[in-house]
Simulated assay, not measured.
Amino acid sequence: MAGSSTKSVLFVCLGNICRSPIAEAVFRKMATDAGVVDTWRIDSAATSTYEIGNPPDYRGQACMKKHNVPMRHVARQVTKDDFMGFEYILCMDESNLSDLKRKANSVKNSKAKVELLGAYDPQKQLIIRDPYYGSDADFEMVYEQCVRCCKAFLEANS
C-alpha cells in the first residue's frame, strides 16, 4: 500500500535474529491489535552480514510463542534504500547507532530518523542488550523492553 498515509519503521540490531525481529513482531502485533497495521510498513534488519538468510533465534521464537506474538522473519542487512524508504530506523544499542549513522551519511537522500528504540522506554533503559550469549531470561527481558518501547513509539505516532 503506497501513499502518504503509510508510516514506516525499521528495527535494527547486529544480526537481525534476536532483538530486531522481536521488536518487529511485538510492534506488528500492537499495530494489528490497535487496528492500524495497514497504515504501517514494518520490517527489521541487521547492521552485519553474519546471519543473512537465517530465521530468528529459536529462543526468541519460543519467547514470542509464549506471549502469543506471531513472528516470521528472515534476516537481512540494512540497505541504502532503507534510509530513503523508512521514516524511522530504531536500533538497540550504541554500536548499532554509530553503524547506522555512518551508513546514513553515505546515502544522499537519507530521510530516516535514526534513533535508539530505548529512547522511547518510559523506564528509561536506553540500551536493549543482545541476549544471544545469554539465557531465556535475557530474551524475556528484551521482550519486556520491546513491549514498553513499541507501545510508547506507537502512541507517539498515532
Rank of each mutant, 00 (worst) to 15 (best):
A2D: 15
A2M: 11
G3K: 15
S4H: 14
S5E: 00
T6K: 14
T6P: 02
T6D: 07
L10E: 09
F11W: 11
V12A: 10
V12T: 12
V12S: 12
C13L: 02
L14Q: 07
G15Q: 02
N16C: 10
I17Y: 00
C18I: 06
I22G: 10
A23W: 03
A23C: 14
A25I: 01
A25N: 08
V26D: 02
F27G: 02
K29T: 06
A34Y: 00
V36R: 07
V36A: 14
V36K: 07
V37W: 00
D38G: 15
D38F: 02
T39I: 00
T39S: 14
W40D: 13
W40N: 11
D43W: 10
S44W: 09
A45N: 03
A45M: 11
A46Y: 00
A46Q: 05
A46F: 03
A46P: 06
A46H: 03
A46V: 07
T47W: 00
T47Q: 09
T47S: 10
S48R: 09
I52E: 14
G53C: 09
N54K: 12
N54E: 12
P56V: 12
R59W: 11
A62V: 07
M64V: 01
M64T: 01
K66A: 09
H67S: 03
V69R: 04
V69A: 00
P70C: 04
P70D: 02
M71W: 09
M71A: 13
H73Y: 09
V74M: 13
A75C: 01
A75Q: 03
V78Y: 04
V78W: 00
D81S: 15
D81M: 04
D82S: 06
D82K: 08
F83E: 03
M84N: 10
F86A: 00
E87D: 15
I89P: 04
I89K: 08
L90H: 05
C91N: 13
M92R: 07
D93Y: 04
N96W: 10
L97S: 15
K101S: 03
K101L: 15
A104P: 03
N105D: 06
S106H: 10
S106Q: 12
S106A: 14
K111V: 15
K111C: 12
K111F: 11
K113Y: 00
K113H: 13
V114D: 06
E115K: 09
L116F: 08
L116H: 12
Y120E: 08
D121F: 03
P122D: 09
Q123S: 13
L126S: 10
I127T: 14
I127P: 01
R129N: 09
D130G: 14
D130S: 12
P131Q: 06
Y133I: 08
G134C: 02
D136H: 10
D136E: 03
A137G: 06
A137M: 08
D138Q: 05
M141H: 08
M141Y: 06
V142P: 11
V142L: 05
Q145F: 05
Q145I: 02
R148V: 04
C149I: 02
C149E: 11
C150L: 04
C150H: 04
K151M: 05
F153D: 07
E155V: 08
E155G: 04
E155T: 10
S158N: 11
S158P: 01
